[in-house]
Design a protein around this nucleic acid. Structure first.
Length: 674
DNA sequence: GGTAACTGGGTTTTT
DNA sequence: CCCAGTTACC
């Protein structure tokens, strides 16, 4: 008898079958809202109750939140370390292993983890030397961030640079040789400075697992490996899973290839499909009973869902029929914004809280006009996706300062920190850093020499910051260090930003969060691998009782659900995105994205199709017909929807004309003629 | 020489 | 709206 017997009792037959499956490798094909998390948690608990040692069960996820959530549900909160199931994101677990064996990877014990923005910064400094600046070779050159994208795409898919450029960045193809040079320099730079990016974490874990000496020991750590969201693995992660469980024993993968939406960062749903080829004895168990959406919503979802051979799935609802999705044709984007507001308010009147409604968009800027309309009407909302907290300038400043303290040899962090000060540009910053780094171990002690590179008037401010950071580096306790770093940034942040008060408030939270970590280095790693979505995220949701509408990108909405979902911009070019229209694979991904969006709705789904877009006019002659506007709403899909037309917003032109005339008369009277 | 302030062109999604 | 290139100022 176990404490978790209840976990199994709460499952339906297909879920229980999956949770207690006794054979070899298992793929749980879990449709949207079918209780995938509960099933995976139950399987972990069941394995443990079968006598498997909890610390030898490895749970791999893509987000920290998913890992924490599942681990909390799989075991009592007071379980001792030995009784705890081991789990985390691919990157976090890789980091743990590499840190424990840093010297074997030729890394310093406290190596810096570069986040994607850092990668772009490094590439930016190496671009000129590789002929990738300005309009080299008569063509426009990719920005540093694009270079970083191409790099990571090659690494995470294992594809050749030439092929990646041709397929995804055709305008960069003539610069393949320059990019190759840049990437060579980039890797050399990382190795020389003891830096590790996200891709390296996975590459190193994979290399260790494939190593004849280390491999058996590393994979021998676990008896069972459970992988969540397997459709989102990239080539390196798929290799890691294969190397962890070469014969498939003890392997459970959960996923749904129709919900794979991360191709842009190297994921490929073919890895999920390939499991059948890798493991001849793979069992596939389908979870198709949805506890989320009404049947009427699922009928549209089932039509929209792309099916693949051998992995077909159709969802049925456990929640009754419900209302058919409503497609609202709108004259233009302004009408669409007005219409969304009206329906949000109407449902709110009917008792659906704002927080129970979400507007899901393909790309962050698709809600711009809507946000104006919401603000004008005083409807509160929060937006997820788009700009991340750690990408805000002042947060990057803080992280740079913390990195200088944690590792005074981090020239990239120095560069950003110095440039924060008035009057310091790239050239002066470089000179100061050069002076600081002449003798490696103690950059801070060289400050008196280095400050000679600066013009007199900027010395006091910079020296003040540096002195406080040196103090921080000299103290032991993490809390003291965090507080001193914050103190060091006060003056420069005040001087640089107009809205300094709000930014400093953010930094106080950041400093508090860092103070709670065992070390500054841990805080920085945590921040890189698991960035908070917003400042309020750090502070633990202070506004829980405020009611607000949710606006989110479809990507950020993955795994979430709302009673009411609004899907605007259902027009070719927006959904699907025009960036993806040129390739078959891109279009397939957009289709899956639409499937994910539709399946977020529990009770009510509103689809909005504006006839005119901001820049290009679409199908003007079809304004009053039901012709398809997005290829995803074909005849079969429309059959599953109610269709209505929003009343067009018609400005009253004639009165406006007479107003203008009266203004003219008024003006005329000002100069007394008339 | 080096920085800041201005202006014009392109804009997906993010562990 | 953010970044890169240009101009104006110290």
């Amino acid at each position: 008898m176990t404490v978790h017997a209840g976990v199994l009792d709460a499952l339906n037959e297909e879920q229980r079958w999956a949770a207690t499956y006794q054979g070899g490798p298992l793929l749980i094909l879990a449709g949207a809202g079918t209780g995938k998390t509960g099933t995976l948690v139950a399987r972990a608990a069941w394995l443990r109750d079968q006598g498997m040692q909890p610390s030898r069960i490895l749970l791999l996820t893509f987000t920290r939140r998913a890992a924490d959530d599942m681990l909390a549900r799989a075991q009592p909160p007071d379980a001792s370390p030995a009784e705890r199931i081991f789990g985390g994101t691919f990157h976090a677990i890789a980091h743990r292993i590499i840190r424990a064996h840093a010297e074997a990877f030729a890394l310093p014990p406290e190596f810096t983890v570069l986040d994607p923005a850092d990668v772009a910064d490094v590439m930016d400094t190496l671009r000129d030397a590789n002929g990738l600046v300005g309009t080299a070779a008569g063509r426009r050159t990719p920005r540093a961030a694009i270079c970083a994208d191409i790099y990571t795409r090659c690494v995470s898919t294992g594809a050749l640079l030439g092929a990646v450029a041709a397929a995804s960045y055709p305008w960069c193809e003539p610069l393949t040789a320059q990019l190759a040079g840049l990437f060579t320099d980039y890797v050399r730079y990382k190795r020389r400075h003891g830096l590790v990016d996200f891709d390296d974490l996975l590459l190193m874990w994979r290399a260790a697992l494939a190593d004849e000496g280390a491999g058996p020991a590393l994979r021998g750590l676990y008896d069972a490996v459970l992988v969540d969201e397997y459709q989102d693995v990239n080539a390196v992660q798929a290799d890691i899973v294969r190397l962890l469980r070469p014969d498939g024993g003890g392997l459970t993968c959960v996923g749904d290839d129709a919900q794979a939406i991360y191709a842009f960062r190297g994921a490929d749903p073919d890895h999920l499909r390939a499991l059948r080829r890798t493991y001849a004895d793979l069992a596939i168990i389908r979870l198709s009973r949805s506890y989320r959406s009404h049947q009427a919503v699922l009928q549209l979802a089932n039509v929209v869902r792309p099916q693949s051979d051998g992995l077909e799935l159709a969802l049925t609802s456990e929640r009754g029929c419900g209302q058919r999705p409503l497609l609202i044709r709108c004259h233009d984007e302004a009408t669409q914004a007005r219409e969304i507001c009206a329906r949000v308010l109407a449902d709110h009147e009917a008792g659906v809280g704002l927080q129970e409604q979400a507007v899901l968009v393909r790309s962050a800027h698709h809600s711009d006009l809507l946000e104006v309309e919401l603000s004008a009407r005083g409807i509160p909302y929060v937006k997820y996706g788009g700009l991340r907290f750690t990408e805000a300038a002042h947060v990057k400043d803080f992280i740079a300062a913390a990195r200088v303290v944690a590792n005074p040899a981090d020239d990239l962090a120095w560069f950003r920190l110095l440039r924060l000060h008035e009057g310091i540009g790239p050239v002066l910053a470089r000179r100061v850093i050069e002076a600081l780094m002449i003798s490696e171990p103690e950059p801070f002690s060289r400050w008196p020499d280095a400050e000679r590179a600066l013009p007199q008037r900027s010395v006091p401010a910079v020296a003040g910051t540096v002195r406080l950071l040196a103090d921080a580096a000299g103290t032991e306790r993490t809390a003291d260090r965090a507080a001193t770093i914050l103190a060091a940034l006060r003056a420069p942040v005040q001087a640089r930003y107009a809205d300094a008060a709000a930014r400093l408030a953010d930094l106080e939270r950041l400093a508090d969060a860092a103070a709670a970590s065992p070390s500054l280095h841990d805080a920085l790693v945590q921040l890189a691998l698991d960035p908070p979505v917003s400042a309020s995220d750090l502070a633990g949701r202070p506004r829980l009782d405020d009611d607000f509408l949710v606006i989110s990108t479809v990507h950020s909405a993955k795994g979430l659900e709302w009673p009411v979902v609004h899907l605007p911009q259902l027009v070719d070019g927006a959904v699907p995105s025009d960036m993806a229209l040129t390739t078959q694979a891109g279009l397939a991904e957009e289709q899956r994205l639409f499937y994910v969006a539709v399946t977020r709705a529990r009770d009510r789904l509103y689809l909005y199709a504006p006839l005119r877009m901001h820049h290009h006019r679409m199908a003007a002659d079809d304004r009053h017909s039901y012709a398809q506007l997005t290829r995803f709403l074909d005849a079969a899909a429309l059959d599953q929807c109610e269709v209505t037309q929003a009343a067009p917003l018609r400005p009253a032109l004639t009165p406006l004309g007479s107003l203008a005339a009266s203004i003219d008369r008024e003006l005329q009277s000002l100069w007394g003629a008339g």
